[in-house]
Simulated scan of single mutants.
Amino acid sequence: MSIQLPAMRGLLIDLDGTLYHGTKRIEGADTLITYLRETELPFRFVTNNSSATPEEVAKRLADMGISAEPAEVCTSAQAASGYIAGKRPGASVFAIGEKGLLEAVRGAGLTLTEEKPDFVLQGIDRFFTYERLAKAVRHIHEGAAYVLTNPDLLLPSTDGLIPGAGSIGAMLTAAGGKEPVLIGKPSQILMDYSLKSIGLTAGETWVVGDNMATDIAFGKSAGCGTVLVLTGLTTLKNIDNYMKQAGCEPDMICHQLDELRSYISDRRGI
């Protein structure tokens, strides 16, 4: 485990597999966030999951005993909608996704439509159908730009791994014949959104997560310090394989969240 990370003034913290599995809090998640609050160390909950609104994410965390506010949540749905609005204010969007994505689209001043959209925006959709796939493919072939909230093929849950937005995206990319604009981790787009929210630079920020291909690659490409926690997707059994696939290594590896909290406390002397 490395003991020399870049300067740290704030943290971007993953959720699924890092702070919880499904509806089950990971040991040490509550005390880590409480410590960050008590020491006034800024942080943001940064998630590739586009299904929930920031309010719902904050409530989910609070229900598990993890203190959270909606303003502290950065989702791929928010960043994706902001990206589209920046490219074409008021654009029309055909959305494949759940409540978090749909509300983010509306909140960015975009218009949801089923016909002739400017953009196809796709996230995770646990009610996804072949009919929605067929419509999205037709729109892409007719010229709509394709935006993907995140590339996660798998997500950890209470019952084990489940397919993520990237699995739907693989079908849509193959059938649509067009590579999407990627918004979520490891894309710089979500990084820029999150850093703007927390008010820090990449060099002042650590990224904490359980996924080498998204969380750690996300931080590495931006120049953040990176902390891999072995609480979710990555374990001692698969870490070498995942590091090889990601093409990078974390600055620090923690087996448990309490280990990370202790390290931060020692480093800051608080």
Rank of each mutant, 00 (worst) to 15 (best):
N48G: 14
A71Q: 12
T18C: 12
V105W: 06
V57Q: 08
L19G: 02
A104V: 02
E69D: 10
A79L: 09
E40D: 15
T111V: 15
A7K: 12
A80F: 10
R60F: 00
G109D: 06
L32P: 02
D118N: 11
A108V: 09
T53F: 10
L19S: 05
A104P: 01
E55A: 14
G28D: 04
E69W: 04
G107Y: 10
R37G: 05
P6G: 15
E56S: 14
T18G: 05
I26K: 09
R60I: 00
A58N: 01
T113I: 11
L102K: 12
A80N: 09
G100D: 07
K87M: 11
E56T: 14
G97T: 05
A68L: 09
G97W: 05
L36P: 01
G86R: 09
I84T: 13
P70I: 07
E103P: 01
E69G: 00
D14N: 06
T75I: 11
A95H: 03
V46M: 14
S81Y: 03
R88G: 07
T31R: 13
P42T: 08
T53V: 10
T53A: 08
G90Q: 14
L101S: 06
I66A: 01
S76M: 04
A104K: 05
L12F: 13
M64F: 01
S81N: 08
D14K: 00
A71M: 04
A62Y: 00
T34Y: 02
R44H: 08
E69H: 11
S76L: 07
P54E: 01
N49K: 02
H21R: 15
A58P: 02
K24R: 15
I84F: 13
F45K: 00
N48E: 08
L41Y: 02
Y83T: 10
M8H: 09
L11M: 14
Y35D: 05
P6V: 13
N49Y: 03
T75M: 12
L11I: 10
V46H: 00
R25L: 11
L19M: 06
G17S: 05
A80D: 02
G28L: 11
R88K: 15
T53I: 08
I96Y: 03
R44V: 03
P42D: 01
S51L: 01
D14M: 02
N49V: 03
G10D: 09
G109E: 10
I84Y: 12
G90P: 08
S50H: 03
A52E: 06
T113S: 11
A68T: 13
I84G: 12
D16H: 09
I13F: 03
S50L: 00
A68M: 12
K59D: 11
Q78Y: 06
V120T: 04
E103D: 14
D16A: 07
R9S: 15
T75H: 09
I96M: 09
P117A: 08
K99Q: 14
G28W: 05
D30P: 00
E56H: 13
S51E: 03
G65F: 12
I84N: 12
L61F: 07
T75S: 15
G28Y: 10
S50M: 02
S67F: 07
V46W: 00
L110C: 09
A62C: 09
R44S: 06
P42W: 05
Y35G: 00
C74D: 13
A91Q: 13
G97Y: 06
F43E: 06
